[in-house]
């Protein structure tokens, strides 16, 4: 042991390795406060949820310290109160499905609107770019709830859109926009689109626009330049933007609550219900963890397929 140490201390490489280890140890020490906060806030709460999901609901909310798998059973199945017959929990499944569908559509719409916006900003002169970025971030200054109610004011039956359309004589009956999936989609797209624009812009800022000229020069039409040159090279931004929009959309709570009314629940609302009126904390915990798993699986598939697509061009 000691002989080995002697010989190794002589070599410069091991000295370097030692210095590296020391540096790692120092860095670890410096990041300890952050790691503690992260552990308590993220892992700690997750652990609590995991434990709660295997307990029995208390009579007036809360939990009883009694092991049970009933909550996990209830995520997917429904047990009749009277005759104990078991059936699939359609309500839960349709809410999960709606959440995934709306989040996917939100991501898609945010991309379709956000990509040209990011392109527009990235092709402005450096001074005006900052102004445009500033405008994109302005909505963040106002509370989400207030912005959501503002949308409600715009699209409700006596709201801005309908009033104007009726006054112009385009329609004679107000359009039913509020409390539909479309309303939720509109609201979520509005809320999350900056999270799509900013990462795509960050990718495009580093993009060499001379490549666009090179492709034009080599007989590529505008559409082909977009598909073959611009999109593959700003893909990291598109992936980041999609994740940043999809994940919070899936857990959205305020927007579907205000704009979807009571009829169009999303997972976030369902979970909230279990901790509130439902008085079923274990089920709420189990639903939360299910949501977490859905997000993780979706992300893994998305990133994998996006990378594979990039690899086909690259190798």
């Amino acid at each position: 042991m000691s002989a080995e140490q002697d010989s190794s201390t002589e070599s410069f490489e091991s000295l370097e390795a030692h210095a590296y280890q020391l540096e790692v140890r120092q860095n670890l020490l410096l990041s300890t406060p952050a790691l503690i906060v992260l552990f308590c806030a993220a892992s700690g709460t997750l652990l609590i949820m995991l434990v709660f999901s295997f307990l029995t609901p208390g009579d007036y909310g809360g939990i009883k310290w009694q092991f049970s798998t009933e909550a996990w059973f209830q995520v997917a199945f429904y047990r009749d109160i009277f005759d104990e017959t078991v059936s699939i929990a359609d309500a839960h499944l349709s809410i999960f499905w709606r959440s995934v569908k709306l989040s996917f559509l939100t991501t898609l719409v945010a991309f379709v609107l956000g990509f040209p916006t990011a392109y527009f900003i990235a092709t402005r002169s450096p001074e005006t770019r900052n102004l445009w970025l500033f405008l994109v971030t302005i909505p963040f200054w106002t509370n989400l709830l207030i912005r959501t109610f503002a949308i409600l004011e715009i699209i409700r039956n006596q709201g801005l859109v309908n009033t104007v359309l009726i006054a112009l004589g385009v329609i004679d009956q107000p359009l039913d926009m509020l409390y539909t999936d479309i309303a939720i989609l509109l609201g979520m797209t509005y809320v999350y689109i900056p999270l799509m624009i900013l990462p795509i812009y960050a990718s495009m800022e580093r993009f060499d626009f001379q490549l666009v000229e090179a492709a034009y020069d080599l007989y590529a039409t505008r559409w082909r330049v977009l598909v073959r040159v611009i999109l593959p090279l700003v893909k990291p931004g598109v992936i980041a933007g999609s994740i940043l929009v999809f994940v919070p959309s899936l857990g959205a709570y305020v927007t579907p609550r205000v704009l979807g009314g009571g009829k169009h629940l999303m997972i976030g609302n369902l979970i909230e219900l279990q901790f509130g009126q439902g008085r079923n904390w274990p089920l709420g915990a189990a639903l939360s963890l299910t949501l977490l798993v859905i997000v993780m699986v979706a992300l893994i598939f998305y990133v994998r397929s996006a990378q594979k697509e990039g690899g086909a061009h690259g190798h």
Partner: peptide
């Protein structure tokens, strides 16, 4: 008419052969 750019403007996500073939493909 084709151009050789000052900083080459080669497509970084393509191989040497794919770069050369780009114009032909288009």
């Amino acid at each position: 008419v084709n151009t050789v750019f000052q900083n080459y403007a080669l497509f970084p996500h393509m191989t040497v052969a794919q770069n050369i073939g780009f114009g032909l493909e288009m």
